[in-house]
């Protein structure tokens, strides 16, 4: 099994953190993982994305030309990435900022009102992890506890940040049945 996901949005939405948290969670479950962020001039234009591949065996290329899943946080990302997701794949979109449906009929799309939910818990910046929580629930690629545990590694010592973000993860996770 090898699954690739692209996380995309604009800079400041915590897109890289979303992918990174997912990658760390997968590592905690002893999966083989690659995490590849966009870099350099690419990220200067305000867009950011990263690709996470998880697998049971060696990952040939960390790049995803046709990923199983795509998570988009804003409209420009929807437009640039929706054609990449493979047939039968799933597109997760942040419906707070994206008021249109994907133009493809051969994929499933899941809308999560992550921006509003984040406002609801008092920190708009946690939309990324709410999104990730929902993503984890739907895909079941990693256990939600691994992701929450991963936050502990990532924000070592910063108790408040860990709390805020695990809360967001859980809310996102519980928002889908």
């Amino acid at each position: 099994m090898q699954i690739k996901t692209i996380f995309a949005g604009f800079g400041g939405q915590g897109v890289l953190m979303m992918g990174y948290t997912f990658a760390v969670a997968a590592m905690r479950e002893d999966k083989i993982v690659t995490y590849l962020p966009s870099y350099g001039a690419e990220v200067r234009g305000g867009t950011a994305n990263c690709t996470v591949a998880i697998s049971d065996e060696e990952i040939a290329s960390p790049i995803a030309s046709s990923p199983e899943f795509i998570v988009v946080m804003n409209k420009p990302s929807l437009h640039s990435f929706q054609n990449k997701v493979q047939t039968g794949g799933i597109l997760f979109l942040n419906s707070t900022l994206i008021d249109e449906d994907p133009s493809r009929g051969d994929i499933e799309s899941i809308a999560i009102d992550a921006g509003d939910m984040a406002e609801g818990i008092g920190d708009a910046r946690t939309a990324n992890l709410i999104m990730l929580g929902a993503f984890i629930k739907k895909t079941n690629l990693v256990n939600i506890d691994a992701a929450i545990g991963g936050l502990g590694d990532i924000f070592e010592g910063k108790k408040k940040v860990i709390e805020m973000n695990s809360n967001a993860l859980t809310i996102g996770y519980d928002s889908l049945k």
Partner: peptide, 10 residues
Amino acid sequence: DGMLGQMMEP
């Protein structure tokens, strides 16, 4: 190259 440099693996 940039891909190996940016990529994360255990």
